[in-house]
Amino acid sequence: MTSVTSLFAPVESDLDLMTQNLKGLVGAQHPILSAAAEHLFGAGGKRVRPAIVLLLSKATLPGQEITPKHRRLAEITEMIHTASLVHDDVVDEASVRRGVPTVHSSFGNRIAVLAGDFLFAQASWYLANLDNLRVVKLLSQVIMNLAEGEIQQGLNRFDTSLSIDAYLDKSYFKTASLMANSAKAAGVLSDMSETVIEQLYDYGRHLGLAFQVVDDILDFTSSDEVLGKPACSDLKSGNLTAPVLYAMAEHPFLTTLIEREFSEADDFNQAINLVHQSSGIARSRELAATHARLAASCLEHLPPSAARQALQDLTSYVLRRIS
């Protein structure tokens, strides 16, 4: 199976340079931030979001070097993503991510919250220094969307009336908005036509939704070791994802288990079994496949290149994670 790392071959050296720059940018201020930066950016993340920005830079400016503004946009994108993960882990009380202790479990909640705040603030500073108001607006919207998604998720815990559309809205806020708006910003920096810029936004939006649905499937089909966190943790915390929402339509008793918040012995195990006995996972696969196909169709306006092919292959890779 093709790894996500090999997909990024056209920008592999650029991603390595970005990682080193991020450790320096974040860690230069204070020893604790330096340790947190080493911890965050050395944790073996896939770096999908900045890779998309760098690949789009190459795909929209064929034959040219990646510009300093595109490189900075990729760094800002990874800063925003990482800041959101740090805060999410505090809210979710997660002790590990990607198999590595979370920032708050290593440094305490206070430092984790401040580190996340610092990353958001620093991303905003570098964003302003791009001197492109449209790009500033796009990425500022992402920061608002991330907070909105986290608030929605908190308010909707154990809410069995949640619809698939509401789930996709929250998934857009929490995952797809950053991919969509950073992709659009890359098109803006490349001075693409409005048609192409909107296509890049749609590419990121559909790819982001596909990634989120696939992650929500893996929560039921992978082990703790593969996930790097406890399996079925979303369901346990009352975060109802696509497999659960589809399963509830087939098994009314699952709704009962969720509404009483797994308060009785074996409720949680029964709930997991009902999800597996339903067509919820299969229907979620179809949902992810639909968005992956839509993402692939959004690249047609770009000229053929290795970078465009990598972006195309990424839409297939997301589905191979659950094949």
Results as ranks from 00 to 15, higher is better:
Ser3Lys: 13
Phe8Asp: 07
Asp16Ile: 01
Asp16Glu: 14
Thr19Leu: 14
Asn21Val: 05
Gly27Met: 12
Gly27Cys: 10
Gln29Asn: 12
Ile32Met: 14
Leu40Val: 10
Phe41Met: 08
Val48Gly: 02
Leu54Pro: 08
Ala59Val: 05
Gln64Trp: 03
Glu65Tyr: 04
Val86Ser: 05
His87Cys: 11
Val91Trp: 14
Glu93Cys: 09
Gly99Asp: 09
Asn109Asp: 12
Ala112Ile: 07
Val113Gly: 06
Ala115Lys: 01
Phe120Gln: 01
Ala123His: 00
Ser124Met: 09
Trp125Met: 12
Leu127Asn: 10
Ala128Met: 10
Leu133Trp: 13
Lys137Phe: 03
Met144Gln: 08
Ala147Leu: 04
Glu150Cys: 03
Asp159Met: 11
Ala166His: 03
Leu168Ser: 00
Lys170Asn: 13
Tyr172Gly: 04
Thr175Asp: 06
Ala185Ile: 01
Ala186Trp: 02
Leu200Gly: 07
Leu200Met: 12
Leu200Asp: 07
Val214Phe: 06
Asp215His: 01
Asp216Gly: 06
Leu218Ile: 05
Asp219Asn: 09
Pro230Phe: 14
Ser233Pro: 08
Val244His: 01
Ala249Trp: 06
Thr256Tyr: 11
Glu264Lys: 13
Glu264Gln: 14
Asn273Gly: 14
His276Phe: 11
His276Gly: 11
Ala289Asn: 13
His291Asp: 10
Ala292Arg: 09
Leu294Glu: 15
Ser297Gly: 13
Ser297Leu: 01
Cys298Ile: 08
Ala307Tyr: 12
Arg308Lys: 13
Gln309Glu: 10
Ser316Met: 01
